[in-house]
Design a protein around this nucleic acid. Sequence first.
DNA 1: ATTTAATCTGACACCGGTGTCATAATTAGC
DNA 2: GCTAATTATGACACCGGTGTCAGATTAAAT
Lengths: 339, 339
Amino acid sequence: MSKSKATSFDIAHYAGVSQSTVSRALRNSPLVNEETKKKVFEIAKKLNYKVDKNASNLRTQQSNTIALLLFEDPTSDESHINPFFLSMLGSITRACANQGYDLLVSFQQMDQDWQAQYEDSHRADGLILLGYGDYIDYQARLATLLQNNTKFVCWGANVDSRPELSISCDNYYGGEQVAEFLVAKKRTQCAFIGDASEHSPEFFARFNGFKDTLQKHGLNVDARQIINAISTDESGYNATKTLLSLKRPINAIFAASDLIAIGAIRAIKEAGLNVPEDISVIGFDDIPIASFTEPALTTVNQSTSVAGEMLVANLLAQLKDEPPVQTQLKPTLVIRHSA
Amino acid sequence: MSKSKATSFDIAHYAGVSQSTVSRALRNSPLVNEETKKKVFEIAKKLNYKVDKNASNLRTQQSNTIALLLFEDPTSDESHINPFFLSMLGSITRACANQGYDLLVSFQQMDQDWQAQYEDSHRADGLILLGYGDYIDYQARLATLLQNNTKFVCWGANVDSRPELSISCDNYYGGEQVAEFLVAKKRTQCAFIGDASEHSPEFFARFNGFKDTLQKHGLNVDARQIINAISTDESGYNATKTLLSLKRPINAIFAASDLIAIGAIRAIKEAGLNVPEDISVIGFDDIPIASFTEPALTTVNQSTSVAGEMLVANLLAQLKDEPPVQTQLKPTLVIRHSA
DNA sequence: ATTTAATCTGACACCGGTGTCATAATTAGC
DNA sequence: GCTAATTATGACACCGGTGTCAGATTAAAT
């Protein structure tokens, strides 16, 4: 990158020692005489020497780098990444930095051959998989990774054969919390917007925690009050309009994500109703926007900074052959004004 | 990364040709016989071969990788990155992917020796510098980069000796737009919240465009109506409380960033006043949150996706010795409900 | 048939560090 | 004073591709 880059050979030359010694000295090997070390460091500094990581990575066969593959939801808008993942991206970046690892980031389309894409293989010691896991082939692809002995960890999506490779928030518990709260607030007509099928493991767990808890309290979720939606405010808006058009009036909505909740609030207001007086709305994720909506969103917080740290920690544990760390994050209900 | 990784040597062995031929074949060199190529590709696929980029980067002395250094504002909260930069991060990632470049992301503390940090040198062909440029030594450090012939491009901050290496939004123009709009709405008591000094080149330009335009229309910004703030909603909130405590009532606020504007709206509401009836509020950036505030924020949009593309394009032009591309992004006023 | 050109391929050095092994120099042990 | 143990260093091969150059094979030209 620099016009004339200094190599360890140059240093060796000026210091009057061998390359081996330079290499050892720079990495602070105890095998090198202190005097020599000092001299080497001086010259290195003077020459503005920087190790060539390509060379050292090649030799040592490890890169101190983690690759982050961010899968996009093919159905959502190209130009906008879900703020939750953006925030994850930020925290993973920071967590890597804290651990002295570099981070390679790339977007991946679920439907393309990211197996091949991750040919960054030799540049990264491990992979973090982030994004939507409800895709055909996903498990098969993960299996291939396992077969290749590729170290990886994913967020949200299950890894059928190796649960310890998947970090997630306790979505079921989150759903329970929401239900308990609504029950305590005497809401009896609760709707759900999201994907209540196994297709979307995270949403499904949220729904189940929600439904089971309501049932425990003798409440039921009418099938017509379960509306399918993807994680965008547009989708939430449409779903809510459908809900509002139903005969039986509802008084609470559990939106499987904050973006959905935001769309829901918009639809409710448009219909001339009030949040939370007429209809309570609770989201999930606690994205940065959540505290700025009107009314501020009551939602389930899954800490992205903790999640990021957990992902990185889990991966590093694998790389160092240490025992796996905790894989579930306890979410917490953040009570604001929308419920 | 894989347990047993296939090398070009292996392919050569099985295909009964030399490594050179394999190398050429895989890169689709016209020098290789089509038959041979086919055979090589087949075997490569069968062996699940992936080039070792460390090796090829080392040999070719280029990495097809861009490093993104994201500088944090040391005064702001550790755990939250400004959503504008987060959004930039997303768009740069995408732009790199589109151009076939990998992206290395890292956070940097302005006050630490990131010169040394970027020892990722040999791993990246060029650098994108993103973040706060109002720091001592910044220009000196940039000068060092130039001296080392390091290719880089920055966002927002000036590069004193080489303006073409800096991409920015036309902040002055943005300020003008805001002022014109407020004047058209007959707002005569306009305040500014931000940093109206050269310390913060972007804010400064916004302020100047704003001020100059108001003056052109015979309006002045009273020095007391210029409040210093950093780009957080907390800071905007405090600044606004100060503004509201002034004798002379104001009826418009130009906040140098959306986060500031959000804090301002909160303070105004808390004081029992209405936005925009009593006080118009206009922000800058058009972060994703902006459309969800109550009232939705009127703000100046600087398209992060265009900006990301421009940054990458500029850097690639440098790498390929092509003439520099356009460096200024025209912002547009997005009129919502807060003004 | 012989020269010339075009096409294809292999041998080999090289990119810049790092690890191994042998060896020289110094110190300790008896 | 001589062997054994330490300590410090250098020579050299190696990681896995890539580029150069020379050589072989075949086709075209004279």
